[in-house]
Amino acid sequence: MNQHPAMWGHPMTPHQAFNAHTAFPLATPNPMRNQHASSPVSHTQQPLVTGTSVLGLKYKDGVMLAADNLASYGSLARFRDIQRLHPLGNHTCLAVSGDMSDYQYLKKELDGLLREEEALSLSDSHPALHPSQIYAFLANLFYARRSKVNPIWNAILVGGWDATKEESFLGYVDLLGTTYSSPTLATGFGSHIAQPLLREAFEKKAGIDGKGELLTAEEAEALLNECMKVLFYRDARSLNKYQIATVTKEGVQISESKSAETQWGFAEALRGYGAQQQ
C-alpha cells in the first residue's frame, strides 16, 4: 500500500510501480498539457506540495492533535516551517495532511465563514458554530467536490470541544468525502504506524469500550511525542519539528514547534546501504 499523498484516491494496486524518489509527479509527462483550448475542463488530479500524516487523540480534558512542520514537493523537503494545525474559533482545531494549496484554500474559506458568523452573531446573539457543525460543513464540502470529480486533496482531522454537551469531538474527513470518528485517529502513513500505538495506549487505560478513565494531559502529550518520533524514524516525508494542539473547554492552544530526541548511532553499524564499503 502506498501512503504517499499523491497516491490517495487512486485505485489500490499494491504492486504497481511507483517511484517516490523522483520529484513526482512532475517527472512524468502530463497528457493534459498541449491539449486544445476546447478540451475538457481538467481538475486537480494529483497533489503537488504535500504535508504528511497528522494524529488525533481524545484525552481527559479534551482533544490533542499533532502535525509536523514540513510541506514536501515530491521527495524534496520544500518548506520546513509550515503550520498544519489551524484553529477555527474558540473550540475547534484542524490538523491537515495532503495538498497544501488546497489547505490554504480551506483556511481562507473557513476563516471567511467564521468571520461572517461572528459578525452576524452581534446582531442576533446566536451561538458560535460547534465543532460538529464545522465538521459537517467540511464533510459536505469534501463530498460535493469529490462528486464533481474535482477533489480537495486532503485528509483532515477535526478536534474540538462541544461547550453545550460538555464533551470532546474528534472526526476524520478526506478527499472522497469519507467520514468517521474514533477516540484515536491518524491519516496517511500514521494510520499504519501511529494508530496501533495510539489505540494500544488508549485502550490500556480506558478499556476497549473506552468507558474507563481517559489519559491525562501529560500522558496524552507523551504518547503523541512518542508517535511523532516513531513516524520521524520511519516516514521519509516527515520532519523532526512538530506542533501539538490542545482543545479543551478553555479553548484552543497550539504549542511552539518542538523536536523529539532521536538516536541514530545504530546507523553506523548498518551495512548494505549508502556509500560505505563492506
Binding site: 484516491g9 487512486h10 504497481q16 509527462p29 502530463n30 497528457p31 488530479q45 462528486s147 470529480v149
Partner: peptide, 12 residues
C-alpha cells in the same frame, strides 16, 4: 502523450 505510461485519473 495520451498513450504515455499509465496515469490514473482520480478514483471517486
Amino acid at each position: 502523450l495520451t498513450s504515455a505510461p499509465i496515469q490514473h485519473a482520480f478514483n471517486p
